[in-house]
Simulated assay, not measured.
Amino acid sequence: MAEPTLFVEVHILQSVPPSNINRDDSGTPKQALYGGARRARVSSQAWKRATRIEFAKAEEPTDRATRTKRIAALLSQRLAAPADNAGAGLDTAQADRLANALLEPLGIKKSTKKEEQSAYLLFFGKPQLDALIALLGGRAPELAALADKELEEEIKKLPVVSALSTGHPAEVALFGRMVADLKDLNVDAAVQVAHALSTHAVRTEFDYFTAVDDENTNDSGAGMIGTVEFNSSTLYRYAVLGAHQLRKNLTSAEATREAVVRFVDAFTRSMPTGHQNAFAHRTLPHLVLVTVRTDQPVNLVSAFEEPVTGNQGLATSSALALAEELRTVGNTWGSTPVRTLATYALETGKLMDSFGPSLPFPTLLNEVSELVGGWLTDASIPAQTAASDAAAEAGKR
């Protein structure tokens, strides 16, 4: 019998003002050709990192995940910390040697340029370093005093790989990890994030700027001149979270439910930070649509294969196109979400026909929590709650 699946999809329409939130190697805002038109693009990597940073704000710093080449240095710092601070109290040289020995079973290659760093970024939870130290059972000083060969033999007896293969923080469980050198460390991601695309065609513009030298009183010339490229756009953003995969990664049903809700919140509120001081571009969405499916994910970007046009704003037209695409997919393919939840501030009854009534965003998150919690308990989708029923009734009035 096939394992039951639950896909929680987040569709967002969001307008950003003149900005350059994700640029290429030449400083130009990233773009893509879609539907024969040049679109603004924000890479999935940029928005995943922004989401991860937003998600981590609710975590204690010591409980967060980190992606770094400096795992050996972090482990060494813990081994050198006093015993009453969860460390081993080793001196720096001993801590460095023992840290490298502990990481040897992971097969993590060192950088050819910087010996103290690994060859690639490794994503792990900071508490997992404490789990590595716990494997030593208080024997750190004893092990650090052993000769190289004896130390290697003792470390081989410890379940080092297991310590980094279990107890994943939510961030690793959500976004996954790939380690080419040791597949046992791989974690299948529970989240997929699409490149954000503008619903309409865009043109890149240039801002010519000058900076004045405040201490220059002798002439009227600028102290610095330059240009920065920018565009403005209404973006369609999409992410899908497999609650079934997240449950595997986290093992705890309660942790899974909480992580799903926090991901929806973090993805909605996050914003990449490119040129943020120059443009102050942080906005909130026009529309957040959560669709829940049990068969397969469906990215609704085809709604904008024909670019949206208009000179009186693009948000409403984009939302109507998205609503029509949701209906079309359901009618054509029979792929209809088992639940649809939405938050929007656009005045049109056609949206309610497709998305249901607009819920205050905190209420939407509560609905997602109830839904995922019910599915984790008995693999069924709970009926609409009183809150959503009330919102529906208010919408009719």
Rank of each mutant, 00 (worst) to 15 (best):
Y120F: 05
T66S: 03
A134E: 11
T92P: 00
S118Q: 12
L135M: 08
P127T: 14
L136I: 03
D84A: 14
K57P: 09
A99T: 00
A134G: 12
T92L: 04
E60K: 03
S111R: 03
P61T: 02
E60P: 00
L122A: 04
L135W: 01
R67C: 06
L103H: 01
G89T: 09
T66W: 01
G137V: 06
F123I: 10
L106C: 12
I133F: 01
L132K: 00
L102N: 06
K69N: 08
A119F: 09
L132I: 03
K109C: 08
L121M: 11
A73Q: 10
R70I: 02
I71H: 07
E115F: 06
P127I: 09
T92N: 04
T62S: 15
N85T: 12
T66R: 11
D84I: 06
T62D: 09
G107A: 07
Q117C: 02
L98V: 07
D130V: 05
A95T: 10
A83H: 05
G137T: 02
A95H: 13
K109F: 05
P82L: 04
G89F: 06
E104R: 13
A88K: 07
I133Y: 05
E59P: 10
P82I: 13
F124I: 15
G87K: 10
L135N: 00
E54H: 09
T66E: 07
A80Q: 15
R64E: 15
G89L: 11
R78Y: 13
Y120L: 01
K110P: 11
T68Q: 02
E115W: 08
E59F: 10
L129Y: 11
L75R: 05
R78E: 15
A72S: 14
I133S: 04
L79K: 08
R97I: 02
A65N: 06
G125P: 00
Q77G: 13
A101H: 06
S76F: 06
P127E: 08
R70Q: 15
D91I: 01
R97C: 12
L103M: 06
R64M: 10
A99K: 00
E115T: 14
A131E: 08
G138N: 12
S76E: 10
I71F: 05
N100T: 15
A73V: 14
P61A: 08
L98M: 02
Y120I: 00
P127M: 15
A95S: 14
A56W: 04
